[in-house]
Nucleic acid binder design. Structure first.
Lengths: 165, 165
DNA sequence: TCCAATACGTTATAGTATAACAAATAGTGT
DNA sequence: ACACTATTTGTTATACTATAACGTATTGGA
């Protein structure tokens, strides 16, 4: 059993090592199932992305890799990111030009992201009602074949608690 | 009376000159009302943004300005954009790093954008149900003080009609 | 084992955005 | 009209994000 963080923020004192381990397990499973090659390079990038619940940019990854002795150029990490995105293992936060791990890799989805403007943590939400409302709006405008990205910037419970407990 | 395009895409043969004129009128009104200075520079940038319903990037604006004889450096146009954004005269499309004119400048709002992946046109939607659904999701996650951006990529009625009429 | 596909390395460059400081201009009160 | 102050604009340099183009290596299968 794994403790996936979907539907809200990771609790303050949660065992994040579990997040990482579970994420890597799921990634291995999914890739094996579909014959996608989770190479050491890609695995390493995924691990770095999962090192926190904060989105990380491509050049942040390059720096982290460099610090751990692996000198890579931008195309290398962008290619790893392309693979991870294509396989639904990470999501891209458009407004941040950054990437977060996906806690629900089994099926393709377009979640809502809650981005804490204070601590930077991101939570992934899947509100059916949001998708339904967007679908209704799109249909009324005659829009077809669409895919939506929803990014919500605010303050997470933890940070809000700190301000007015 | 003006024909604001909110709630859907601009119809194929619409009189776009009216879009521009109306947008500039509204901008002048709003700025006058709140004592914001719509300088020639800012006015020019707003006109260029309204020259179509397609988002335009900062460097696209610089190029257009340069073509019309005005040589400006990036900070100039970014400052104009900051002003226009702050006063709700334009919106930023995060996933495109580009800007579109806002057809509803009177009050602050966070609309949904329908982006045609074919022709590039963008429509601004304000579905109350979308905002409500996001609000519900955010509340359930303990998220506070938020603001959402919704960007939907698909095919507009016009382009879809061309494919299967 | 050889072939073809896939992944990775490398260099250069395109595209987006801002920092920092100087100069000019507009609005305010006298 | 005058000086004062705030705002706007100009200028240079630079940071950050992303991809093109080409070559090499590795992998998996016929």
């Amino acid at each position: 059993m794994d403790l996936r963080i979907t539907g809200g923020f990771a609790p303050p004192g949660h065992n994040h090592r579990r997040c990482i381990v579970d994420a890597m397990d799921r990634a291995a499973q999914v890739c094996a199932a579909r014959g996608a090659r989770l190479t050491p390079q890609r695995r390493r990038v995924l691990e770095l992305i999962w090192s926190s619940h904060k989105p990380v940019g491509a050049y942040g990854l390059i720096e982290q890799l460099s610090e751990s002795g692996q000198q890579v150029a931008p195309p290398t990490v962008y290619r790893a990111l392309d693979f991870l995105l294509a396989n639904g293992l990470v999501h891209r936060i458009e407004r941040l030009n950054a990437f977060v791990g996906c806690p629900e890799v089994e099926q393709d989805h377009a979640p809502q992201f809650l981005i804490c403007g204070d601590c930077g943590d991101v939570a992934e939400l899947r509100e059916q009602s949001v998708e339904a409302a967007i679908a209704a709006g799109a249909r009324s405008a005659g829009f077809v074949g669409w895919r939506a990205s929803v990014e919500v910037v605010g303050v997470c419970p933890e940070c809000a608690g700190g301000i007015s407990p």
